[in-house]
Amino acid sequence: MTTAALPGTSVAPSPPSTLAESSAEASGAVVGDHLLRWRSWVTEHRVGSSVLAGLVAVHIATITGFFMPGIGLPKLDWNTANGLIYRPTSSANVQFLAGGVMHYMDGVAFAVLYALGLHPLLSRFIRSTSVGNLLKGVLFGLLLATISAAFMAPRVYYPDLHIGFFSHRLGWQTVFAIYLWHVVYGLHLGLIYNPRDDRERLHLHKS
Rank of each mutant, 00 (worst) to 15 (best):
E21Q: 14
V47N: 04
A24T: 13
W38Q: 05
V47T: 05
S23D: 15
E21Y: 10
S17K: 15
S22L: 12
R37W: 07
S17T: 12
V56S: 05
G8L: 05
L52H: 02
S10R: 10
S17G: 09
G8T: 08
A53Y: 02
W41A: 00
V30H: 15
R39A: 06
R46W: 00
R37T: 08
S40T: 09
R39E: 06
G28D: 13
T9V: 09
P16S: 09
S27P: 09
A20P: 12
L55D: 04
A29C: 10
L35M: 10
T9A: 07
V31C: 08
P16K: 08
S27W: 13
A26N: 13
A53K: 01
R46V: 00
A53R: 00
R46F: 00
W41Q: 00
T43M: 02
V42W: 01
P13M: 09
W38S: 04
A20N: 09
G8F: 06
T18N: 11
L35Q: 11
S49H: 03
V56I: 09
L52Q: 05
R39L: 03
W41G: 00
R46E: 00
S17M: 10
G32W: 08
H34E: 08
A26D: 14
G54D: 03
P16G: 10
H45Y: 00
G54M: 03
G32N: 12
V51L: 07
L55P: 03
V11F: 10
S49A: 11
H45R: 01
A26T: 13
S49D: 02
S40C: 02
E21L: 09
